[in-house]
Design a protein around this nucleic acid. Structure first.
Lengths: 151, 151
DNA sequence: TCTGAAATCATACGATG
DNA sequence: CATCGTATGATTTCAGA
């Protein structure tokens, strides 16, 4: 993972449909060298996958919220984690420091959907308490490799 | 945006390097029809871009934190938003309901970097107060279109 | 890592329902 | 108007050095 790899990642992050020739021109390398580097980064897991960035609104997911969760004392933590992975509305779930156990990021279509979602967590008995913060607007939401200097 | 469009999005989210022929086989359509649909969704903004999903660790970004921000009473809110967009460490920034003004998601290499980052916010005079929550582990972090049923 | 050939693919176009 | 089949130019892939 050298400077050239990082530059390739930055270029692919911008547009992963760029041709190998195009990328090669930007980093001063041949098509096959670039191809080999991408293959290696994909194999090592540095590049997790080639994907598309979708506008949530296009999928009818106009409501974004963060839900803080404190698990009930008798809750099965592993069962909670397994369940989280199966719920489409939960796009992120992090185990965090501070007064709460988990922070989840939730995307749903309407506030009614959000209410239903919160109800389903409660119904499963995972919750000791929770707090929901609704996003009014998003200032920025960028990929991890937006730039090359991250000092 | 019908069922077939959503299926195409789901397939591209999994692997955007799939060939049009492959996708066409999955949705029962010709190469040209699939191509036209992808072109249309890209033009309309439903597909924002083709990109790669990068492992933050591969870029040396091993520390993830959420920072709650309450802007100072005399802070220039637009200046804050503009500044946020220029800081590589800030991967997300949302205007939220509740006791805080903004929730930011921050990725840095080390806790020292995190400390430096917090210092730079303070130095700019934006803050009335802030609270930092550090992520211990991430249970899930999926794309928005992971499935087709989001009811 | 490069060059060059071979295979695969995306794209454009006219036709069809 | 969306979809299709075909032709063509571009692109990825793979061999050998």
């Amino acid at each position: 993972m050298d400077t050239i790899d990082r530059k390739i990642i930055a270029l692919l992050t911008e547009d992963s449909r760029r041709s190998l020739a195009d990328i090669g021109g930007s980093v001063g390398m041949s098509v096959s060298a670039v191809n080999e580097r991408i293959r290696r980064m994909t194999a090592s897991g540095a590049i997790r996958r080639f994907t598309v960035d979708i506008d949530p609104l296009a999928l009818g997911l106009g409501v974004l919220a963060f839900v803080w969760v404190e698990l009930a004392g008798d809750a099965d933590e592993q069962a909670f984690r397994d369940w989280v992975a199966t719920v489409p509305a939960i796009t992120e779930c992090h185990h965090v420091t501070g007064g709460w156990s988990y922070l989840t990021k939730v995307r749903v279509g309407t506030l009614a959907d959000l209410e239903a979602f919160l109800g389903s967590i409660k119904a499963r008995g995972y919750l000791a308490r929770s707090e929901t913060v609704i996003v009014l607007s998003t200032v920025s939401e960028t990929a991890v490799a937006a730039t090359l200097d991250h000092a």
